[in-house]
Amino acid sequence: MKKEITLTEQMFYILLTLCEPMHGYGVMMKVAEMTAGRIKLGAGTLYGAFNNLQKSGLIHFVGVDEENSRRKIYETTENGRLILISELNRLEENVKNAKEILYADGEV
C-alpha cells in the first residue's frame, strides 16, 4: 500500500466506476453522467488506462460482454480499492483545509 501512485482525475474516475464491472463505453457514459458531462473520456485514453491499470493490478479482466464478445469487461481489484481509499483521504484533507481557510469568517 506504500506504492506512490498518482491518479489523474480521469484515472480516478475510471477506477471508481469500475468498482462495478463494466466495459469501456459503459465507463465513459457513467463518468459523463456522474460529472454532469464535465469529464468526457476519449476512447484512446480509456484503452490505455485499462492496459495500465491492469498491468499495475488495480483492475482485472472479468469476462466479455454477452452481446459483443470483443468487448472486454473489467473490475477494480482489492488493491485498486485501497488506492481509491487513500485518494479519498487525500481529497478529504484538501476539502477540510480549504474550508477552514476560505470559510474562516463564515463568508463564502
Binding site: T8, M11, M28, K40, G42, G44, G48, A49
Partner: peptide, 16 residues
Amino acid sequence: VVFPDIYSENTSKIEK
C-alpha cells in the same frame, strides 16, 4: 461521438 478526440487527457497523449 461524445468527445471529438481519442485522447481526453495529456498523460495518455504523452504515452502515445
